[in-house]
Amino acid sequence: MDDREIIDNIGGLVSEERDLRDRSTREKTGLSTDEKSRLRTVETQLEQYWDLLRQRRALSEFGEDPSGARVRSPGEVEGYQS
């Protein structure tokens, strides 16, 4: 997967996340259980894609092959501090 594909995936997930968050505040009942689960999944996937993109860019910056970057586990990327 190259940077363009990663960015496209991030864009799609951001759009889906925005839609779910809008629905959660617009609907009196909030999100269904399935929608809440999907939102958590989308948030996790976003963290993983952003992490993958950062890895690829760091490898490139230091003259290494960006294809060496790998998707890390949700537990690993969710534990990062800004």
Results as ranks from 00 to 15, higher is better:
Met1Thr: 03
Met1Tyr: 04
Met1His: 07
Asp2Thr: 05
Asp2Trp: 10
Asp3Arg: 03
Asp3Ser: 06
Arg4Ser: 09
Arg4Phe: 11
Ile6Phe: 04
Ile7Asp: 09
Asp8Leu: 14
Asp8Ser: 12
Asn9Gly: 00
Ile10Arg: 03
Ile10Lys: 03
Ile10Cys: 01
Gly11Ala: 12
Gly12Trp: 08
Gly12Ala: 10
Gly12Phe: 04
Leu13Met: 11
Val14Asn: 08
Glu16Asp: 04
Glu17Asn: 01
Asp19Gln: 10
Asp19Leu: 10
Leu20Ala: 00
Asp22Lys: 15
Asp22Cys: 06
Arg23Asn: 12
Arg23Thr: 03
Arg23Ile: 04
Ser24Thr: 07
Ser24Asn: 09
Ser24Gln: 14
Ser24Glu: 13
Thr25Arg: 10
Thr25Gln: 11
Thr25Asp: 11
Thr25Val: 14
Thr25Glu: 15
Arg26Trp: 06
Arg26Thr: 10
Lys28Ile: 08
Thr29Gln: 13
Gly30Glu: 13
Gly30Arg: 06
Ser32Cys: 04
Thr33Leu: 07
Thr33Glu: 13
Thr33Ser: 14
Glu35Cys: 05
Lys36Ala: 10
Ser37Arg: 05
Ser37Gly: 08
Ser37Ile: 02
Arg38Trp: 07
Leu39Arg: 09
Thr41Tyr: 08
Thr41Arg: 12
Val42Glu: 00
Val42Phe: 06
Glu43Gln: 15
Glu43Tyr: 02
Glu43Cys: 07
Thr44Ile: 10
Gln45Trp: 07
Leu46Met: 10
Leu46His: 04
Glu47Tyr: 08
Gln48Tyr: 03
Trp50Tyr: 15
Trp50Gln: 12
Asp51Tyr: 06
Leu52Val: 04
Leu52Ser: 03
Leu53Gly: 04
Arg54Asn: 14
Arg54Trp: 15
Gln55Glu: 11
Arg56Gly: 02
Arg56Trp: 01
Arg56Val: 00
Arg57Pro: 01
Ala58Cys: 12
Leu59Cys: 13
Leu59Lys: 02
Ser60Ile: 05
Ser60Gln: 13
Ser60Glu: 14
Ser60Lys: 14
Glu61Asp: 15
Glu61Leu: 12
Glu61Phe: 06
Phe62Gln: 11
Phe62Cys: 03
Phe62Thr: 15
Gly63Cys: 09
Asp65Met: 09
Pro66Glu: 11
Pro66Leu: 13
Pro66Cys: 08
Ser67Arg: 09
Gly68Tyr: 04
Arg70Met: 11
Val71Tyr: 06
Val71Lys: 12
Val71Met: 15
Val71Arg: 13
Arg72Gly: 02
Arg72Ser: 04
Ser73Glu: 15
Ser73Val: 05
Pro74Phe: 08
Pro74Ser: 07
Gly75Trp: 03
Glu76Tyr: 11
Glu76Phe: 02
Val77Gly: 01
Val77Gln: 05
Val77Glu: 13
Glu78His: 07
Glu78Gln: 15
Glu78Thr: 10
Glu78Asp: 04
Gly79Ser: 14
Gly79His: 05
Tyr80His: 08
Tyr80Asn: 08
Gln81Ile: 09
Ser82Arg: 14
Ser82Tyr: 12
Ser82Gly: 12
